[in-house]
Design a binder for these strands. Structure first.
Lengths: 186, 186
DNA sequence: TACATATTGGAGTGCTTGCTCCAGTTATGC
DNA sequence: GCATAACTGGAGCAAGCACTCCAATATGTA
């Protein structure tokens, strides 16, 4: 099905509206009526561009999950410090996508099998990346995979706490946590 | 409105059904039809005992949040190790309530103001308890409140990861994380 | 036993949901 | 500028939703 330019633009407007609604209202608030009104399109246009409402939401989730683990170019060079800074930057620079990531992927992923699978896969990939970076920077550290797991878990937990309590000094805690986990009898 | 014994028993059956459904299907799956059929009651009986569907769900959430931080009797005696073990025990012994806690309270709490408030309050109380325990056991440790925050965040993150990946050695990681956070230049 | 009140199931209500259908309009390649 | 295909909004649809209403029944009290 070839697409015209206007169609692709409308598609983008719908995705943007979906992002906004997910952030402000959550999954429950993302009804077709709300999405289409926000995007300024009729239901017919929506279904001309997406197979279902869920398809649009999953597209947004997919993008959010990808955004949390960007730039695979630096693979083999990056340090754990780089990765932690990237995580901090992700949450600081792009809080909307970050919120969607935690809200849908982490929260909703516990019930929805499809989302849970995606999140787990992305988690495993990230854990491997952290493990490799730790092995490079701290070759004598015992159990690098375990350290990676604990560091990642801590970052996720801090991110959630921060969403509940915006006053939390997220970056400071994240950096200190890296030191805690990596410099212990390292 | 005085209650008969049978009414209170029915109420308990409904709450139990709600717990089960929340665990198995999540909030989205908890429709009135599902809840009442599971509990074996008619809609009329449900609304004789609860003001709304949401009231029943919030009741379950309230209980789950309370269960994550039990036994305030030991206050002033407990060590950080005790608190970590209590958290491990909570997740190991009562995985159903634990799942509800994370699923609804942490996941749903990011959008629902009322739930978010409850979760934040319970988080603060727990953080204070951890801080006090750290000050007692590690009087020379710098920034005990920050350490408590990082330890709690890590435990939450590990719990989430474990729900996504049941193979995760949760207890081992949790204990090691305590050591990471508390014994660094302690 | 007689009475007031709580409990019961389920048919029915009004509303919202995701989605379809379609006639009219617009974009694009030749 | 014509043919073809994509795009458009919105009326309409069946299904599902939370919830109400009520007549019949069970429960507890004096």
């Amino acid at each position: 099905m070839g697409r015209y330019r206007v169609g692709l633009e409308t598609r983008e407007r719908i995705l943007e509206a979906t992002r906004e609604v997910l952030v402000e209202e959550g999954v429950e608030g993302a009804t077709l009526k709300v999405l289409t009104e926000r995007a300024g399109v009729g239901a017919g246009s929506f279904y001309n561009l997406f197979d279902s409402k869920e398809a649009a939401i999953l597209e947004v989730v997919r993008e959010a999950i990808q955004a949390v683990d960007p730039d695979p170019g630096g693979l083999g060079e990056e340090s754990p410090e780089d990765l932690v800074e990237a995580y901090i930057a992700f949450f600081t620079r792009d809080p909307i996508i970050a919120r969607i990531y935690l809200q849908l992927a982490v929260g909703g992923g516990l019930t929805d099998e499809r989302i849970a699978g995606r999140v787990l896969r992305s988690h495993r990939a990230r854990a491997e990346r952290f493990t490799a970076a730790i092995e490079r920077s701290y070759p004598d550290a015992a159990d690098p995979a375990g350290r990676a797991e604990r560091l990642l878990a801590g970052l996720t937990g801090l991110a959630i706490t921060r969403l509940l309590d915006p006053g939390l000094p997220f970056a400071t805690h994240a950096r200190q946590l890296r030191a805690d986990v990596l410099e212990n009898q390292g």
